[in-house]
Amino acid sequence: MAMRVKELADLVGISVRTLHYYDEIGLLSPEETSDFGYRLYSNDNLEMLQQILFFRELDMPLKEIKHIISSSSFDKQEALLQHQKMLLEKRNQLDKLINTVDKSLKHMKGEIQMTNKEKFEGFDFSQNPYEQEARKLWGDKAVDESNAKVAGMSKEAQKAVSEIYTKLASIRNSSPESEEAQAAIKEWYDCLNQNFGTYSLDAFKGLGQMYVDDQRFTKNIDQYGDGLAKFMCDAMGHFADANKN
């Protein structure tokens, strides 16, 4: 049975804004149109959305997801097998961490003795996907300098960052080109340049695009409010373009 966007959003538990964005970037577009002009999602659309959400659960960027599922060689069954494999690996690591928590609680109660090595079983810091991607984009020096600044950020600066995100989240349903939105996004631009290195207008716009292209960023930013990453992307793009003139 074909579904309208609100029905699908309610069924899956994601926002209408997210589905609209997937449509805008050509990741998932409704295949049917009702007699009244409503765009409807087919059963094939629902199956593809399931695939997209499996990829998202594994922190895969939207650009990469789009590239994979639009390939002529994409096999849904093979993809599900890969999802299963990777999710089992993820569960295995979580099981180890849960076991470490359980043993730590018993250790604190004096029921068992843990070795120092046992206290850190399940943690895996062999890779940092955010840092790896940043190194590819901007090089080691820029990332190292950024890491040093983040590590040395004062509590006041951390509070300022949180306040800016909270302010932007409170107006995310307004126009990203509005005077209020542009004033708030300028605060974010200034904050980045004061605390995280030098950002040109083009770099600022590119960073905003990463907020929606890379689901890892989207997931973290949208913790402040659903749809905030998309709102910030649009506001940052407009800010960069407007201030070049």
Rank of each mutant, 00 (worst) to 15 (best):
K167W: 09
K167C: 13
K167L: 12
K167V: 07
L168A: 15
L168E: 12
S170Q: 12
I171L: 04
I171N: 02
R172P: 03
R172N: 01
R172D: 01
N173P: 06
S175G: 05
S175K: 09
S175H: 11
P176D: 11
P176R: 15
E177P: 04
E177C: 04
E177F: 14
S178M: 07
S178H: 12
S178D: 12
S178G: 09
S178K: 13
S178P: 10
E179D: 11
E180G: 01
E180Q: 10
E180A: 11
A181L: 11
A181N: 03
A181I: 07
Q182L: 11
Q182P: 07
A183H: 10
A183C: 06
A184F: 02
I185R: 01
I185P: 06
K186I: 01
K186C: 03
E187K: 04
D190F: 00
D190P: 02
C191A: 14
C191F: 15
C191K: 11
N193T: 06
N193H: 06
N193K: 08
Q194I: 03
Q194A: 14
Q194K: 13
Q194G: 13
N195C: 05
N195L: 07
N195K: 10
F196H: 15
F196V: 04
T198Q: 14
Y199V: 09
Y199K: 06
S200Q: 02
S200R: 02
L201Q: 08
L201K: 03
L201P: 03
L201H: 02
D202F: 12
D202H: 12
D202C: 05
A203F: 10
F204P: 09
F204N: 08
K205Q: 14
G206Q: 11
L207E: 14
L207C: 13
L207G: 14
L207K: 07
G208T: 04
G208Y: 00
G208H: 00
G208E: 02
Q209F: 02
Q209R: 03
Q209H: 04
Q209M: 08
M210I: 08
M210G: 04
M210K: 11
M210V: 09
Y211E: 01
V212P: 00
V212F: 06
D213Y: 12
D213C: 05
D214Y: 11
Q215L: 09
Q215A: 05
R216W: 06
R216Y: 01
R216N: 03
F217D: 01
F217H: 08
F217Y: 13
T218M: 04
T218F: 01
K219P: 01
K219S: 09
N220T: 14
N220Q: 14
D222R: 01
Q223D: 09
Q223H: 03
Y224T: 00
Y224G: 00
Y224N: 04
G225P: 06
G225V: 11
G225E: 10
D226P: 02
D226W: 03
D226S: 09
D226F: 03
G227S: 04
G227N: 07
L228F: 11
L228C: 07
A229E: 07
A229T: 08
A229Y: 04
A229I: 02
A229F: 03
K230T: 06
K230L: 13
K230Q: 12
F231I: 10
F231H: 11
M232D: 05
M232E: 08
M232V: 09
C233S: 07
C233P: 00
C233V: 00
D234T: 06
M236H: 01
M236W: 10
G237T: 12
G237I: 05
G237N: 08
